[in-house]
Design a protein around this nucleic acid. Structure first.
Length: 857
RNA sequence: GGAUGCUUAGCUCAGCUGGGAGAGCAUCGCCUUUACACGGCGGAGGUCGUGGGUUCGAUCCCCUCAGCAUCCACCA
């Protein structure tokens, strides 16, 4: 028997272990069609937050739904080593212990990092369990597992051999705090207020001078030219001459190139090839020297002369002051410009000339573009996100994949110590003592990009899991990962498996705080999902996260809605309690043919089937919110408010009992994927049940068990109930005021119609007659009149009926307008036309009846 | 500079391929009715951002504008 109150603590207790122990997440029926998802691997950097819950719960719902639908669901768990993020955290922890991580050396540091990983992996496991995720743990992977590492090496070597990975000296995004290169997507551009300083450059052997504006005076030590636009009349005559660099007196050639924008600054631009990507391109074009002026922590190097050793911003200040003193600073102009910040450290990224490894993107991106134009294309939900990926792929730059870190996949490149060459190989050379392995590791996203197939044991393409579950069925992730991850999985997979990594991709938005702000540590507005779970239960959290949102859009955390979710679950809980009480301990389900059921039972079964149809249709489109709202309406309006109350009259009938049982089963099986804990509890209390709700099948629509007539008949009853209740309330009458009712109709109402009506409206007496007097408060329906026998004010009655008549006349006018409109009659769909005609007839009948009533008054 | 999304009840948001707008919370009134006060019943509250267009018919499709938000982009 269920407890009187729904207690989420009690309900959740032990369920997850029960599922695990019975291997429900990891038992696979190979005769069924597979449905597979690989989890977006969380970083081993900390606790899971609400965003993770939003990322995993929809997937869990679909995994459970598909399993119930008869698929072999497989959800593969795993975690990501998260190179930069984890290394930064481990280094920070060591620093707090007073240890400079460099002092440990590579091996020593990695030991610490692995210990960290084990610690956080165990936290993440607990949190997955708390969220109730149906993960196939025996298949769990970690991006730094040996097998995955081999996979990474194979991919690297293969791309290298094809010329798709190369080493090059280029301007990259340098994080001076973490001292590593970054890829373009790891740089966040923020609008920063900046200053444009105008400096005077003296022309060599001339009295003339040139004014050059820059936002970065500290890089002037690396200038190797000044550019103007050859079309610029102001400066045309200076091209070919030289000017003095104000910071060090170097002679800089004045050159012309159309790249220079005449309208920006003074139209004269300093060129710093080693610290600006555009200047770098110009330097390549004109074969200019590239002078690096900073070290890896963005402090000035020996090229900066007296400024050597200063931080770049300190240097900037000094240079400005010194030039000001010399009278060379002519103007300061405040401007707003975009400045790149490191995604991880938030340090201002320094464009830095450096030797790094790159992936040549064009051919790989082209394959993705081709895929999305083909029949095999990946379907995105919502569809517009395909365009997001495509547009990125169309404008993609080469991908810088080397990172100056220790925690990650070490680049499988070995340099001969004698400097005579290098070997790129999946395994270390046999005479390793003669080699030195590349010190760098790969971008985390390089291995993440292989995730859907590396976890399924690629390159062993004969592996049974690979054969069965790859390509995976669905990817569920946030739109913020389309560039970082989704697109990279797609091109890596196309390149190595010749298949897309997943057939469909469900994209969700971000969760924000109650005010719509991003949750962040600095704002301190983060919500810990485990606080929510403690207060409202994980089922309420799951329900809230997946139903109070729209696919692809951001959502706000709203505690009220979590509470409302919990209340809904309480409603289901109590309806179950009622049903179980009615069924009693000895209930045995039997199948009663639909046509033999009473009308009220036919009605609720019809609505149940309609609901199954609506819910299933939306689940298939991954519209979790829409699916749940159909069920919600059914549970409240049809089941609890109406049928369940009606059933109290006939609760001992076999038909009623079986119907209650069937409807309750349908409801909990449909909501089960959203809220597995409470539904498992209710399910196991059903008189007849399997060992777990996880073994159950999803309800199927029985189209033969839908009777529109039964629904209409029940709705007539419902309308009368509502009208009487409404009348009582609006006339300040007590809801339980006894009344006598007369129904005048030539139609056959269903048996016990009067008894139901009496129960719901506190009527002492209900007469059903074919013809009768209209003495009292009158309500009209297409083929019936309801008379409430009360002493009433005739004027008031008249006014009410007149108002109703006016409404009906409006409806009739509208219907006539449509039906007399030849365009409508000829162009509207036949079903719509038919519906309108029926409505029209109903309205006419009601009108006639109303007019009679008014006349009688 | 490009691109996308959003604008619907006091608040937060639904509204499926066009056919008289819904939920939760808040609010007002009534009800301790034997599943549920984590409740029940009933009500009030919307010119569906602006202006056009397509259509028999537009919250929904197209265009314009406005406001908000996000993403992308090397303008020194």
């Amino acid at each position: 028997m269920l407890d009187k109150r729904y207690s989420h603590q009690a309900v959740e207790q032990g369920k997850y272990d029960f599922w695990l122990k019975n291997k429900y997440f990891s038992t696979h029926d190979l005769t069924k069609t597979p449905f597979s998802i690989v989890i977006p691997p969380p970083n081993v950097t900390g606790k899971l937050h609400l965003g993770h819950a939003l990322d995993t719960i929809p997937a869990d719902i679909l995994i459970r739904y598909k399993k119930a639908q008869g698929y072999d669901s497989m959800w593969l768990p795993g975690m990501d080593h998260a190179g930069i993020a984890t290394q930064a955290k481990v280094a920070e922890r060591l620093r707090k212990e007073g240890i400079d991580y460099h002092s440990l050396g590579r091996e020593g540091f990695l030991k610490q990092a692995w210990a960290w990983k084990d610690e956080y992996a165990s936290t993440i496991h607990k949190q997955w369990a708390a969220l109730g995720l149906a993960l196939d743990y025996p298949k769990e992977r970690f991006t730094l597992d040996d097998k995955l590492n081999q996979c990474v090496n194979k991919v690297f070597v293969s791309l290298y051999n094809k010329g798709l990975i190369y080493q090059g000296e280029r301007i990259i995004n340098w994080d001076p705090e973490l001292k590593t290169a970054l890829s373009n997507v790891e740089v966040i551009h923020k609008k920063d207020p900046g200053t444009l300083w105008y400096f005077k450059y003296q022309i060599v052997d001339s009295n003339e001078s040139l004014i050059v504006a820059t936002t970065r005076p500290e890089t002037m030590f690396g200038d190797t030219a000044v550019f103007v636009n050859p079309k610029d009349k102001r400066y045309k005559h200076l091209i070919g001459k030289k000017c003095y660099n104000p910071v060090n007196g170097d002679k800089l050639p004045i050159m012309g190139d159309s790249y220079v924008d005449l309208s920006f600054g003074t139209g004269a631009m300093k060129c710093t090839p080693a610290h600006d990507p555009n200047d770098f391109a110009l330097a390549n074009k004109y074969n200019l020297e590239k002078v690096i002026v900073m070290d890896e922590s963005a402090h000035m190097n020996e090229k900066a002369g007296v400024y050597q050793g200063l931080d770049r911003y300190e240097c900037r200040k000094r240079v400005i002051n010194d030039l000001k003193d010399k009278g060379l600073l002519l103007k300061e102009e405040k401007i707003e410009h975009e400045v790149g910040h490191s995604e991880r450290s938030d340090a201002v990224v320094e464009p830095y000339l450096s030797k790094q490894w790159f992936v040549k993107m064009k051919p790989l991106a082209d394959a993705v573009l081709k895929l999305q134009k083909s029949k095999k294309k990946i379907n995105f939900f919502p569809a517009r996100f395909s365009k997001t990926m495509i547009q990125w792929m169309e404008n993609i730059d080469d991908w810088c994949i080397s990172r100056q870190l220790w925690w990650g996949h070490r680049i499988p490149v070995y340099y001969k110590k004698d400097g005579t060459g290098m070997v790129v190989s999946e395994t270390a050379p046999k005479d390793i003592e003669n080699y030195r392995q590349d010190e760098d590791v790969l971008d985390t996203w390089f291995s993440s990009g292989l995730w859907p197939f590396s976890t399924l044991n690629w390159p062993d393409t004969n592996d049974s899991d690979y054969q069965r579950y790859f390509p995976t069925s669905l990817m569920v992730t946030g739109y913020d990962l389309i560039f970082f991850w989704v697109s990279r999985m797609v091109f890596q997979s196309l390149e190595f498996t010749k298949e897309p990594p997943f057939k469909q991709c469900l994209i969700h938005g971000l969760i924000r705080d109650e005010l719509g702000r991003k949750m962040s540590k600095t704002l301190g507005n983060g919500v810990d999902p485990f606080d929510v779970i403690a207060k409202y239960g994980v089922d309420a959290l799951r329900y809230f996260l997946t139903t109070c949102s729209s696919p692809g859009l951001d959502m706000r955390y709203d505690e009220n809605k979590v509470e409302a979710s919990a209340n809904y679950l309480n409603k289901i809980w109590n309806s179950a309690r009622y049903v179980l009480d009615i069924l009693g301990p000895n209930f045995k389900a039997e199948t009663i043919p639909f046509k033999k059921l009473p009308i009220t039972e036919q009605y609720i079964i019809s609505r149940l089937n309609e609901t199954i149809e609506q819910v299933t249709r939306n689940m298939e489109k991954y519209e979790l919110g829409a699916a749940s709202s159909h069920l919600y309406n059914f549970v409240y309006d049809d089941f609890c408010s109406f049928y369940l109350e009606m059933s109290k009259l006939t609760s001992q009938n076999v038909a009623t009992k079986n119907t209650l049982y069937q409807v309750l089963r349908g409801v909990i099986l449909m909501i089960y994927p959203y809220t597995p804990f409470i539904t498992e509890e209710i399910y196991q209390n059903l008189p007849e049940h399997l060992k777990s709700i996880m073994l159950e099948s999803y309800p199927q629509v029985d189209k033969k068990a839908i009777s529109k007539e039964a629904v209409a008949k029940a709705n007539l009853l419902n309308s009368m109930i509502k009208d009487i209740r409404n009348y009582k309330t609006s006339n300040k009458l007590a809801p339980n005021l006894p009344v006598n009712l007369t129904i005048i109709t030539s139609d056959n109402l269903f048996p016990d119609f009067d008894k139901y009506l009496a129960r719901f409206t506190f009527a002492k007496k209900v007469d059903i007659v074919k013809e009768g007097q209209n003495q009292g408060v009158i309500f009209t329906y297409p083929n019936a009149t309801l008379v409430v026998n009360l002493e009433i004010d005739k004027d008031e009655m008249k006014a009410r009926l007149t108002k109703e008549l006016a409404n009906i006349n409006n409806e009739i006018k509208r219907s006539e307008g449509l039906l007399n409109n030849q365009n409508f009659v000829s162009k509207a769909p036949a079903a719509k036309l038919q519906l309108e005609k029926e409505k029209y007839q109903k309205h006419l009948a009601t009108k006639k009846s109303l007019e009679e009533k008014l006349k009688a008054l």
